[in-house]
């Protein structure tokens, strides 16, 4: 999640859409833990409402980004829906990320698709038993106009940097990004 936020601008508000299942399963966003407070949170009843909200948001150029979280594999989330989002996003210039929790990487019209899993954090310089700066294992498995790749990313002191890749790891949660 920090992975996404670092890519969003700060001066305009952020639209964060979660469907009810995503809130139940992986929690509601907690603004004190986020770098920006300037956001609008939408609790959608189901994937259909969430996608509608995202599309309304993406069409609007007054947002810094739109983030949508969907749980599982809803039927309404098909190729058409994702392609609509991608096209609308390119037209308005508002970045849009679709976060799929516990979903399968099925057909999608997204421009970039990432698979992101958490990785053991970096060593905490103050206390080696404590968790350090967060790290992720990010795999770009499909993208338009660029080769796929896999990186280990860490967030430290307010910026992202790549760290040395460290072996294979099981994929905890999968995320896919569009636009």
């Amino acid at each position: 999640m920090g992975f996404l936020l670092a890519q969003a601008g700060a001066e305009k508000p952020l639209l964060w859409v979660q469907d009810r299942m995503a809130i139940l399963e992986s929690g509601r966003i907690h603004p004190p833990g986020l770098p920006t407070q300037n956001l609008i949170h939408v609790e959608a009843r189901d994937a259909k409402d969430a996608l509608w909200t995202m599309e309304e948001g993406v069409r609007c150029s007054c947002l810094s980004a739109v983030i949508g979280e969907l749980w599982g594999d809803p039927r309404t989330l098909d190729f058409t829906a994702t392609r609509r989002l991608a096209v609308a996003s390119e037209r308005s210039g508002t970045p849009c990320w679709l976060v799929r929790l516990a979903g399968n990487a099925n057909l999608s019209g997204a421009r970039m698709r990432w698979r992101i899993a958490s990785a053991p954090s970096l060593v905490n310089p103050l206390d080696e038993r404590a968790p350090g700066s967060p790290a992720w294992d990010a795999e770009l498995f499909r993208a338009r106009g660029m080769p796929p790749g896999r990186w280990a990313v860490a967030h430290e002191a307010g910026r992202f940097h790549l760290v040395a890749a460290s072996g294979d790891r099981t994929l905890g949660e999968e995320r896919r990004l569009s636009a």
Partner: peptide, 12 residues
Amino acid sequence: LPPMQRPQRLLD
């Protein structure tokens, strides 16, 4: 808010 390490997600 006081700068505390807080999670990004909170269960209801």
